Simulated assay, not measured.
Amino acid sequence: MNIGLFFGSFNPIHLGHLMIAQAMLDNTEIEQVWFIVSPQNPFKKSKALLHEFDRLEMVELAIGDNFNFRASDLEFHMPRPSYTVDTLTYLSEKFPQHQFKLIIGEDNLKSFPKWKNAEKILELYELYVYPRPNAVASIELKNHPHVKMVDAPMVDISATFIRRAIQEGKSVNYLVPEKVAEHIYARKLYK
């Protein structure tokens, strides 16, 4: 099976993430999208990060019973900070029957060469790249045979904007799935 791996802090997961995941299913040979909740992104500060189990729970609420989507806590059990290449290696060894594709935003192509073992990732896996507003991507990477530009909605919803709105007492309806909004309000997250 072709599995798209969508890594992220999902702090919180929002409708943009779900739209991109669905576009991957609709516009590529990807048959399932696994949301890999990252406990700590090596390129991001962890100070504003909710506990990983809260973020995983929100992903589970967001994807509900969609059998094409799965939530994964795999990186919770790996050394930190977690590196994509280590997760890809682990998954390929554990599930040799699957072909894993890496889903990333076009804005990440610029920094991709700085990722741990970026050359190995490009050699062994395909990158499925969704468009991002104002992204300046590497032409060399865009033309790489293992990089596929995917037609997906240009989504500009930011988790930072959502967290700030919550802190300011504003509504996040229509930015996050309804069950996620209810969970955030009930648990008083991001306050």
Rank of each mutant, 00 (worst) to 15 (best):
1 M>S: 13
2 N>S: 12
2 N>T: 04
4 G>D: 08
8 G>Q: 07
8 G>M: 08
9 S>K: 13
9 S>M: 07
10 F>W: 11
12 P>K: 11
12 P>V: 04
13 I>D: 01
14 H>G: 01
21 A>L: 05
23 A>H: 13
23 A>E: 05
24 M>N: 03
24 M>Q: 06
25 L>S: 06
26 D>M: 10
28 T>P: 04
29 E>L: 15
32 Q>I: 02
33 V>H: 07
33 V>D: 08
38 S>I: 05
39 P>M: 09
41 N>W: 09
43 F>M: 12
46 S>N: 12
46 S>W: 11
46 S>G: 14
49 L>E: 06
50 L>E: 14
51 H>Y: 11
52 E>Q: 15
52 E>K: 15
54 D>A: 13
56 L>H: 03
58 M>D: 05
61 L>T: 00
63 I>N: 07
65 D>L: 14
69 F>N: 01
71 A>E: 07
71 A>M: 09
73 D>F: 11
75 E>T: 01
77 H>S: 13
81 P>Q: 10
82 S>F: 10
82 S>E: 08
85 V>Y: 13
88 L>S: 03
88 L>I: 02
89 T>S: 13
89 T>M: 14
90 Y>Q: 13
92 S>L: 08
93 E>F: 14
94 K>I: 02
96 P>D: 11
97 Q>T: 04
100 F>K: 12
103 I>M: 05
103 I>W: 08
105 G>M: 12
106 E>A: 13
108 N>W: 08
113 P>G: 04
116 K>W: 06
116 K>V: 04
118 A>M: 09
119 E>F: 01
119 E>D: 15
120 K>W: 13
120 K>N: 06
121 I>S: 06
123 E>T: 08
127 L>N: 07
132 R>H: 06
133 P>F: 14
136 V>N: 15
141 L>T: 03
142 K>W: 07
143 N>C: 11
143 N>S: 14
147 V>T: 06
148 K>M: 11
150 V>G: 10
152 A>C: 10
157 I>N: 04
159 A>I: 06
160 T>N: 08
162 I>S: 04
162 I>M: 05
164 R>V: 05
164 R>H: 13
165 A>E: 13
167 Q>D: 01
168 E>Q: 15
169 G>H: 10
172 V>P: 01
173 N>G: 02
178 E>D: 14
179 K>Y: 03
179 K>G: 00
179 K>W: 03
180 V>P: 02
181 A>S: 14
182 E>G: 01
189 L>E: 09
190 Y>Q: 05
191 K>I: 09
